[in-house]
Simulated assay, not measured.
Amino acid sequence: MDAIKIRTIEKKDNEFIASIIREVLVEMGVPKVGTAYEDESLDKMFETYNQPKSVYYVVEENGVILGGGGIAPLENTDENICELQKMYFLPSLRGKGIGKKVIQQCLDFAKASKYSKCYLETMPYMKAARALYEKVGFSNLEQPVGDTGHYSCQAWMIKEL
Rank of each mutant, 00 (worst) to 15 (best):
K11N: 10
K11M: 11
N14G: 09
N14Y: 12
E15K: 14
E15L: 13
I17T: 04
I17N: 00
A18C: 15
A18I: 05
A18Q: 12
R22S: 06
V24Y: 01
V24R: 03
L25V: 03
V26L: 09
V26Y: 05
E27M: 10
M28N: 09
M28G: 06
M28E: 11
M28K: 10
G29A: 11
G29W: 11
V30T: 13
V30D: 01
V33K: 15
V33D: 14
T35V: 06
Y37Q: 06
D39T: 07
E40S: 12
L42Q: 07
L42D: 04
D43K: 08
K44G: 03
M45C: 10
M45H: 05
M45A: 07
F46R: 03
F46C: 05
E47S: 11
T48H: 08
Y49G: 00
N50V: 05
Q51N: 14
Q51E: 14
K53V: 01
S54T: 09
Y56N: 06
Y57N: 06
Y57T: 07
V59F: 06
E60Y: 03
E60G: 01
N62A: 01
I65T: 02
L66I: 12
L66C: 07
G68M: 06
G69T: 08
G69P: 08
G70R: 00
G70C: 04
I71V: 13
I71R: 01
A72N: 01
P73A: 05
L74I: 03
E75M: 05
N76F: 11
N76I: 03
T77P: 00
T77D: 03
D78C: 13
E79H: 14
N80Q: 12
N80A: 12
N80D: 12
C82E: 00
E83D: 07
Q85W: 00
Q85K: 12
Q85T: 13
K86S: 10
M87W: 02
F89T: 04
L90G: 03
P91M: 11
P91Y: 10
S92W: 03
L93W: 00
R94K: 15
R94A: 09
K96C: 10
K96G: 11
G97N: 13
G97P: 12
I98C: 12
I98G: 12
K100A: 15
K100R: 15
V102P: 04
I103D: 04
Q104V: 15
Q105W: 08
L107R: 01
L107K: 02
L107D: 03
F109H: 04
A110R: 00
A110T: 04
K111I: 12
K111C: 15
K111V: 14
A112P: 04
A112D: 13
A112Y: 07
S113Y: 09
S113Q: 15
Y115S: 04
Y115A: 05
K117W: 13
Y119G: 02
Y119H: 07
L120V: 07
L120F: 05
L120P: 02
E121S: 06
E121H: 02
M123P: 01
P124E: 08
P124W: 02
Y125E: 09
M126W: 02
M126Q: 08
K127C: 03
A129E: 04
A131L: 14
A131E: 14
L132G: 07
Y133R: 05
E134K: 14
V136T: 11
V136E: 10
G137V: 10
S139L: 05
S139Y: 09
S139Q: 09
N140G: 01
N140D: 08
E142L: 13
Q143K: 15
P144T: 10
V145R: 03
V145M: 14
V145Y: 04
G146N: 04
G146K: 00
